[in-house]
Every structure is written in C-alpha cells, then in structure tokens.
C-alpha cells in the first residue's frame, strides 16, 4: 500500500503513537502485577513518551481527528509497528531485554515512515513522512543511549521465586 494523502498519513501516525502508548501502559501494568517494578517503571516512562508524541501530533497536525476504518490501516504486520507484541515479554525480563524490545519497536516505526517516504512523490506529503521518520530515528538514538548507560546489573533476568513445575 502506498500512502497518497495527508489524512491517511496522519491517521497512521496517530495510531502508531497512541497504540504504542497504550501498549506500554498495559505492559507496565503487567510487570507491576508480576512484581517486576523496575521494568514496569521503564515501560511507564516509555508510555509517557509515546503519549506525549501522540499529543504533539494532535496539536500540530490535528491527527487525533483523523481516523480510518480498522481495515484501512495498512501495517504490513499483525499490529502497528511501534507496539511490542504481547507475546514478546515475560515477567522475569531484565531492563536490558525490555529496552532491546523497545529499540526494535522504534526501529520498526522509523522503517515504516522511511518506506512510505521513499514511495511518495516529492512534495509536502513526502516532507511530512520524512519528518516523522526523523523523529522516530531520534527515538531510536534515545533508546540506544539508554541501553549504553545500563550496567551489567541490568542484564540479569530476575530469579523466579515461584517456578512452574519443571517440564
């Protein structure tokens, strides 16, 4: 699918950010429920960042007012690119594992915009898609910086104090 109009691009952009914010919020809740508060706090922070990004899109471009039918979103994957799939987390995950997942999500979002920017003819729409790609690239660098600051104490999965029956 090629994005050919501003409304479709904005709808996709808003969905990317708002769905990512909602997913991080959900994952944070899961982690806190599982007593993995360190990763829960991390996901909460990421949820705030994504929600802020969605709000900016809405403020600057009116993106929240543009919606498509569920079947008109075209991601090329099962979910929007910036969400971490529910199945890709676990309750013992370390901060490094969580940030590695977040990094992959940011890269998918950047790649989504870059792919569309490359397929849009020169003009305002392409400029906007390129701008969104640059913002996601900035997020990629931010998460990379967080990862580089982690010390080895953040690498270990937590010990499971209530292991399931060995299989």
């Amino acid at each position: 699918m090629t994005i050919t109009d501003r409304a479709t691009l904005l709808a996709h952009a808003y969905a990317i950010e708002s769905e990512a914010a909602e997913r991080y919020e959900e994952l944070a809740s899961q982690m806190h429920t599982s007593n993995n508060h360190e990763v829960g706090d991390l996901f909460s922070k990421l949820a705030e960042i994504e929600a802020k990004h969605a709000a900016e899109l809405s403020l600057e471009h009116g993106a929240a007012n543009v919606t498509l039918a569920a079947t008109d979103y075209s991601w090329g994957s099962l979910e929007s690119p910036e969400v971490i799939p529910f199945g890709d987390v676990h309750h013992l995950m370390s901060p490094r594992q969580a940030l590695t997942q977040a990094l992959a999500a940011e890269r998918r979002a950047r790649d989504f915009y870059e792919h569309h920017a490359a397929n849009i003819p020169e003009g305002d729409l392409r400029t906007l898609a390129t701008e969104f790609a640059a913002e996601e690239a900035e997020h990629v660098r931010m998460v990379q910086a967080w990862l580089s600051r982690l010390d080895s104490s953040n690498d270990e999965e937590r010990e499971d104090m209530d292991q399931p029956m060995p299989l």
């Binding site: 899961q30 429920t33 599982s34 569920a70 529910f86 987390v89 676990h90 309750h91 995950m93």
Partner: peptide, 24 residues
C-alpha cells in the same frame, strides 16, 4: 481490576480484542 495472567500470555490480547469488539 488488573489481569494476573503471566506477561506474554495471549489472553491479554484477546481481552483487548473483546473490549474493542464491544465498542464496535
């Protein structure tokens, strides 16, 4: 109420789909 399923469980996603379907 917050679900107590294991993180990674598919049921989180199903719950999301159920509530979305109800809204639709």
């Amino acid at each position: 109420l917050k679900p107590v399923w294991c993180p990674g469980c598919g049921d989180f996603s199903v719950l999301m789909a159920i509530t979305k379907a109800m809204a639709d």
